[in-house]
């Protein structure tokens, strides 16, 4: 786990709620204003280059390639949990090697993206990887390209379910709980990643300060959608 600093964020790591009963895997859906705007772009233009950094989704690949777009898949949350990224600093604190992470991920040669779907990644990823990841994404996006991200609000608890998102072609998203082996746990013991923090609006704006514009959409399910233009 990374050495943490407080930038106006609320952390949940000290929570000891062990009573939560894991829900059976199921697909839910939600209406997404941000995805609605992305869908309009996908439906009106051809041969866009789309980067999906959620879990591999056959649904998303089918929909995007079916519309004639190029689809890149990269499960960054899973990649960020690689034990090989973890070491200790001089004080014995566990740190995550962001340089090694970026050497091994988000490397696309000459490819530049029109659309990047990062879903809820920043809320579940190690903090020390978040800003370097956003900076790298800026560098691989085309000017005018769109990035869609979801951020939990303060109403979300630390045990908020981590979902993966399946695009349906409109403003509706299918959601499915994410579960995989976490660092330090047996491979057979799959768990849903825990919410690492809640970003406030100012921190979100700082995170995307190099981008041209940022638009917030408030939803009723303790999620803020953020649509950013490179």
């Amino acid at each position: 786990m990374a050495v943490l600093s407080d930038h106006g964020m609320k952390f949940f790591r000290s929570s000891t709620n062990q009573d939560a009963v894991p829900a059976a895997p199921q697909k839910l859906n939600r209406r997404s204003s941000g995805m609605g705007e992305i869908s309009r772009l996908l439906n009106s233009q051809e041969a866009l280059c789309v980067l999906d950094i959620g879990a591999t989704s056959a649904n998303n690949i089918r929909l995007l390639t079916g519309k004639g777009h190029k689809n890149y898949s990269e499960d960054l949350l899973r990649a960020s949990l690689d034990p090989a990224l973890r070491g200790k600093d001089e004080n014995g604190n566990i740190v995550v090697d962001s340089k090694k992470f970026l050497d091994e991920n988000l490397v696309y040669g000459n490819a530049r993206f029109d659309v990047v779907l990062i879903w809820n990644l920043p809320d579940y990823m190690e903090e020390s990887l978040v800003k370097p990841t956003i900076d790298r994404l800026w560098s691989v996006m085309k000017p005018g390209g769109f990035l869609l991200a979801f951020f939990h609000t303060r109403d979300a608890g630390p045990d908020s379910t981590c979902y993966r998102y399946h695009v349906t072609g409109s403003d509706m998203l299918d959601m499915q709980e994410v579960k995989f082996a976490l660092p330090g746990r047996p491979a057979s013991e799959k768990q849903s990643p825990r919410l690492q923090r809640v970003f406030n609006n100012r921190h979100i704006e700082n995170l995307f300060r190099d981008f041209a514009s940022i638009k917030f959409f408030l939803a009723r399910d303790a999620i803020r959608e953020v649509l950013v233009v490179r």
């Binding site: 591999t56 390639t65 898949s73």
Partner: peptide, 12 residues
């Protein structure tokens, strides 16, 4: 692609 498969790369 079956549910659970992992793919890191481009699909063209």
């Amino acid at each position: 692609i079956e549910e659970g498969a992992f793919l890191k790369g481009k699909v063209d």
